[in-house]
Amino acid sequence: MSRTVVTPKRRRFRITPYALLLPATLVVLLALGYPIIWQVITSMQHFGLAQQFGQAPEWVWFDNYVTLFTNPTTWLVVARSVAFCLVTAAVTMVIGIAVALLMQVVPAGVRIALQIALLLAWATPVVAAMTIWNWIFDWRRGLVNWLLTSIGIPAQNHNWLQEPLTFFLVALIIVVWMSMPFVAFSIYAGLTQVSGEVLEAAQMDGANPWQRFRYIIVPLIKPVLGIVMLLQIIWDLRVFTQVKLLQDRGSIASQTDVLGTYIYQLGIGSSDFAMASAMSIFVLLLTIALSWAYVRNLLKEDEEA
């Protein structure tokens, strides 16, 4: 009796997908490659204000990195930035998921009004929005102090931006307010792909709302949650404008610096562009490290497919 040997099919190599990706890849390499190469080279030189006016830079190789990372201030800023990034991203995701679920259950009119409000908050230019937020938390005539004083909480002339803890609380509120609409819209789009029949069947089997959300909805929209969380971590780690404009209102920069403002202080403030470049390269590597878990999971899923 003869046996039939089944040989696995070889995966055919197709050049068309790679050819279609090539133009976009070249554009990205040209747009991002040159700045990164320039920063790597500059980070290994002595590049200050004199070099901006034509003086030849002196090669110091890794001395800038040694100086930067033997400075305790650098590690304090890194720890502060990572903590702020993770907390802000987590709060944004929780509120964004809650708003997305809310948009699913409210009537159509309320949902449209909510979506318009979210879109306006997301589309507002950062500087314009920060002008409003600076007025809201102004210590002399701000809305928050007036409301707290009106309900009996003594907050008149309280400077929210003077203490680091309240400064980052205000920064967290602002960053979450600006980022949450993107999260809510993305997750809501994912929720529309969840089959209502599956949820109804689970409800008939006795699953409560939390169980339906945890065991059915979350696994089905997991890819959306993953990419949105990854983007939030990258964006919140590199936050600059909101923190810088809050600092300009009178806070102590050395106590409230994050990675973006720290690089700005090194480069523009101190005219030490080599040190700023070294710090920028470190931020790039830190971003890759924080997002590597998700990238590795994508590669694993692609191999299994």
Results as ranks from 00 to 15, higher is better:
139 W>S: 15
193 Q>F: 08
208 N>G: 14
151 I>F: 09
177 W>V: 02
179 S>P: 00
168 F>V: 02
189 A>P: 09
186 S>C: 02
197 E>P: 11
186 S>L: 04
156 Q>R: 15
172 L>T: 13
182 F>S: 13
203 Q>F: 02
214 R>E: 10
196 G>I: 00
185 F>W: 03
152 G>W: 01
203 Q>G: 14
132 I>R: 01
132 I>W: 13
132 I>Y: 13
210 W>A: 11
180 M>S: 02
182 F>A: 13
207 A>Y: 09
189 A>V: 12
215 Y>R: 07
151 I>S: 06
215 Y>W: 11
210 W>F: 14
168 F>S: 08
179 S>Q: 05
217 I>A: 04
193 Q>P: 01
158 H>A: 11
222 K>I: 00
145 N>A: 02
188 Y>D: 10
159 N>Q: 10
154 P>F: 05
133 W>Q: 09
208 N>C: 06
167 F>S: 10
151 I>G: 06
152 G>I: 12
186 S>K: 00
169 L>T: 13
176 V>A: 05
216 I>N: 04
135 W>I: 10
201 A>S: 15
219 P>K: 08
179 S>C: 03
189 A>F: 11
196 G>V: 00
206 G>L: 01
153 I>N: 04
215 Y>I: 00
211 Q>V: 04
183 V>S: 12
167 F>Y: 12
217 I>L: 07
131 T>H: 02
167 F>E: 07
202 A>S: 13
135 W>F: 15
164 P>C: 08
146 W>P: 00
199 L>K: 02
188 Y>S: 12
184 A>N: 04
160 W>Q: 00
157 N>C: 05
214 R>D: 06
185 F>I: 06
160 W>K: 00
166 T>V: 04
188 Y>Q: 07
156 Q>G: 14
205 D>N: 02
189 A>S: 14
164 P>W: 07
161 L>G: 04
222 K>W: 14
135 W>A: 09
211 Q>K: 13
201 A>H: 10
147 L>R: 11
179 S>V: 00
175 V>L: 11
142 G>E: 07
216 I>Q: 06
149 T>V: 11
220 L>D: 02
216 I>F: 14
179 S>G: 01
174 I>N: 07
203 Q>V: 01
197 E>Y: 03
165 L>I: 14
